[in-house]
Design a protein around this nucleic acid. Structure first.
Lengths: 346, 346
DNA sequence: TTGTACGCGTTATCAC
DNA sequence: GTGATAACGCGTACAA
């Protein structure tokens, strides 16, 4: 029972490295990450060698507590599996790793209460940054509680960045949802469509509301009749269900459907087809986001391109460049495809 | 300048709570999360009230260092934006949150070296669990280094779980890739197909290799000629490109394409269509994974259903129920759709 | 340039 | 039941 015992051996500490290198703990610390260069280069290499030999890796929690700040970025999304959020997450993770930081992830699942709870417990992590993507915080008291919580966090030195949620006193990266929807409306009008249905989500979801309103406003400005509005879930299943409802009630004179995001639009296309209604032929369909699958469905989906990954990158950039409540707004662009073919004028 | 100064106020500590409640730090600690029940209930509520009033949240790093263990689960994936991995990640996150733990995420981007580097620095987090999904570790020395690194981590009390990567001395959750591919081959033979092309990825990607080999083995067992193999990327772009190559060379007598995952298959379908070759009509296409978009493309994609989210859940379950090198293997099932219509016998 | 010693916020081990 | 106090692993004055 001399040395070969390989039981729960704990990882080497700075102490071990120092001993191995024959220097003090302080010197070892300085040699490995000292902001001060005041260490004899010979000792530096000695310490580095010892660290490498022992396969030493500094205990991040210990560093955090000693330094008074962590290296983590907390990301809160509605749903990782949704391509919209996973694209944003990909951008956040990339930028975070490039900055040498660590991402922690939490899923709010569309519940404002859950989101508030997450933010509350998140503070225990003492993250450097909190990024909220796709929150749904228009609901009365929860909203205020969340704002207060975030404000307190910021007062303690944290950075808050919201993605796609403006009107809150924090740095924000948005996309021009209203403008994009309006542009889409103009494009569809230009193609000859006149009677629309809009599949939108609950107004608490800001993204949905902005797109919905932008579309409506443009239609109204063009003197068009009000479109048929169907409220449903902000998901593929929601789009599918809304399309079924539309088919069931008989869609009268509706010529084109605008679903406020692509997964809804794609779900709707499949529902139409399942009901024997051919998207692109019997009814036009347009979405929003221009996620990858939009190219792969048939007919390819008309959409509004949103730089999702870029939004994630911007969020981190914003967080690191301690700007105030500034915000960046990404432009979007309509992409016309075969799901909305030109319509022969009535 | 008395009390209203709201500058960088740091978050309340246990000390503050104790003072506010009029008890000692030790009592406060015990009242909030002490495993020992030896605290007067009156004091418990007093402390709880103080904590609530101050909006106290325990410093996780401090707890980690005091307790000697963190509450984090480290997840390493190839790419968050890929629906395959985001589905797995969703499962992992869900199970982790249910267990009251925290997920950190890192992206390996398909590089074994990067993955090794990630695992190395990950040890600094002292995570309770490391989950590797979709690694690519068959490459010579990197593989051994990774195994050694993980083994060392485990010796220090950490739990390692691999998803979709067997043959390594760690707990593993796999899906029956070989069996599923063989079953798919049988099904396609049953539909009357005889001449195949297979789009597969580099053999270092174990998942791809297993599916490829399973498909080949079944074909061979049935006395079929060897299929045309095209190696490409494990992504949508890879599938697209492989399909282009197949079209360019003229695909002779190939009747059906098996792409080793759905995103490749979907990319291939789009490429075929772009080239004027109608998938399902001019050429059959089958994939693997049965991700959601498989239902939305036209024709709907024949695939092999893999319980991705379940795999993520299993991984966490495995990690928490300190089993040894055990493993779970999820069954898969062929789902025939219109992308592989029955073929009139030759 | 280096080492000693203290502090970070928390838990755990003691006495009381 | 409770309160000092010593850890935990590290950074960093301060002194040498």
């Amino acid at each position: 029972m001399a040395d070969g015992s390989t039981v729960p051996s704990s990882p080497p500490t700075l102490h071990d490295v120092a001993r191995e290198a024959g220097v003090s703990i302080a010197t070892a610390s300085r040699a490995l990450n000292g902001s001060s260069r005041n260490v004899r280069s010979e000792n530096v290499s000695r310490v580095r060698a010892a660290a490498a030999k022992l396969n030493y890796e500094p205990h991040l929690s210990a560093q955090a507590i000693a330094r008074g700040s962590t290296r983590t970025v907390a990301l809160v999304v509605r749903d990782v599996a949704d391509p919209y959020f996973s694209a944003i997450a990909a951008g956040v993770v990339q930028a975070t790793e490039e900055a040498g930081l660590i991402v922690t992830m939490a899923v709010a699942d569309g519940s404002p209460e859950r989101e508030l709870e997450i933010v509350r417990t998140l503070r225990g992590q003492r993250p450097r940054v909190i990024i909220l993507a796709g929150s749904r915080i228009e609901g009365a008291g929860v909203r205020d509680a969340l704002v207060e919580e975030l404000a307190e966090y910021r007062t303690a030195g944290g950075r808050v960045v919201l993605i796609s949620q403006r009107d809150l006193p924090f740095a924000t990266v948005t996309v021009d949802n209203r403008g994009g929807a309006a542009e889409l409306a103009r494009a569809l009008l230009g193609l000859g469509y006149r009677r629309f249905a809009v599949f939108h989500a609950a107004p608490e979801i800001r993204t949905s509301r902005d797109r919905y309103e932008g579309f409506l406003a443009e239609l109204a400005a063009a003197g068009m009749p009000e479109p048929l509005a169907i409220e449903t879930g902000f998901t593929r299943a929601g789009g599918y269900e809304a399309a079924r409802r539309l088919v069931d009630r008989g869609f009268e004179d509706v010529e084109a459907v605008f679903a406020v995001n692509d997964v809804m639009a794609i779900g709707a296309m499949t529902a139409f087809r399942d009901a024997g209604v051919m998207p692109g032929t019997d009814i036009a369909v347009a979405g929003f986001d221009d996620i990858e699958p939009a190219l792969d469905v048939l007919p390819p989906l008309t959409s509004v391109a949103v730089p999702l990954r870029e939004a994630g990158l911007s969020a981190m950039r914003l967080a690191l460049s301690d700007g105030g409540e500034a915000g960046v707004r990404h432009p979007v662009g309509v992409v016309l495809r075969d799901s909305t073919p030109p319509r022969r004028s009535a």
